[in-house]
């Protein structure tokens, strides 16, 4: 019970924080805040298939971009904002379904390569289908929601997304995903409907990314292919791993670290990415469960040391002779 309260508390707290940051900061810092919030929403989705399920998904930026572009195109046709948004998300989820079906029998390295390629092709489409996408320079997005509404939606999505993730994580769905991550063949043997579970996770994660993309388009007013390349997919992959794949707050921590490093460090072109790369390798080697995993492992050790000491004093050892 306490876990649920903590999780919900965290979700609400982060929602409020997001709202404050988005309304309070402006200019460059405001842009950073937007990116962190948007990425958090997208990464919550990634946390399903990659965090809980253990599948290295490099298609996420494509779904993110898909949501943004699709909503822009639909808005042009005159549809009301909410309808356009929902249709865009649905469309991208359908694409996610197709991707999941195509790669349903691939795993590990092959899955990473396949999804990476999917994003590359998506970027190609974004860049070349100029009639719809405006080509390499991108296109403007009609503003269907007012800025205030978008900010509220962004903040609320953080909270709702985290709550939904927590619910999924503690449900049978989450258990099944974790079983797949631990040993997919064994899970299958034991009767877990692995294909269905993976499909569902992939579709939901695509939906989260798409929704993030829609909101991103609304806030920014413009979308361009450079924001949705396979390099971006890599960074999302890295961000989730850094934060703590599978953990509730992993997306938030990861987004903050990656966006913070890439946008705030102005040590010159590319230096922040070098730092990111080094950091990511170090985290992978030393704290394979990301920052949050490392923190909780540390907390466990501190607690163990403390109770150990308490035990000894009870038993009289270490007492002053």
């Amino acid at each position: 019970m306490r876990a649920h309260v903590t999780a919900l508390g965290g979700a609400v707290g982060l929602s409020v924080l997001a709202y404050l940051l988005l309304t309070g900061l402006s200019g460059d810092q405001g842009q950073v805040a937007l990116l962190v919030v948007v990425w958090t929403i997208a990464l919550i989705g990634l946390n399903l298939i990659q965090g809980l399920g253990g599948y290295p998904n490099l298609a996420h930026a494509a779904f993110f971009g898909g949501g943004a572009y699709l909503s822009a195109v639909l808005l042009d046709t005159g549809l009301p904002m909410t309808v356009a948004a929902l249709l865009a998300v649905a469309g991208v989820m359908a694409a996610g379904l197709v991707v999941a079906l195509v790669f349903s029998r691939t795993r590990g390295q092959y899955f990473a390569i396949g999804t990476m390629f999917f994003t590359a092709v998506a970027t190609l489409v974004f860049t070349n289908a100029a009639d719809l996408t405006g080509g390499p320079n991108g296109r403007p997005v009609a503003l269907g929601y007012s800025l205030e509404a978008t900010v509220v939606l962004l903040a609320a999505s953080v909270g709702v997304g985290l709550a939904l993730f927590h619910w999924a994580s503690v449900s049978r769905f989450g258990d099944r995903l974790r079983a797949i991550r631990a040993d997919e063949d064994l899970a299958q043997h034991v009767g877990v409907p692995t294909s269905r579970v993976k499909l569902l996770a992939m579709v939901c994660s695509a939906g989260a990314a798409a929704w993030a993309g829609v909101l991103f388009g609304q806030y920014n007013g413009v979308v361009a292919p450079s924001q949705f390349t396979f390099g971006q997919s890599f960074l999302m992959f890295v961000a989730l791993g850094l934060g703590g794949a599978g953990r509730l707050l992993g997306p938030a921590v990861g987004a903050a670290v990656v966006i913070g490093l890439t946008q705030l460090l102005t040590l010159g072109p590319g230096v922040s990415q070098i730092v990111l790369g080094v950091l990511f390798i170090l985290v992978t080697l030393l704290a394979p469960e990301g920052v949050l995993g490392g923190v909780s492992a540390l907390a466990r050790r501190v607690r163990a040391a403390r109770t150990g000491r308490a035990d000894r004093s009870v038993r009289g050892e270490g007492a002053v002779a």
Partner: peptide, 13 residues
């Protein structure tokens, strides 16, 4: 894959 990506980030940048 994680280490590979980290290295790619480093080398390219």
């Amino acid at each position: 894959p994680a280490v590979a990506l980290g290295l790619m980030l480093i080398l390219q940048n």
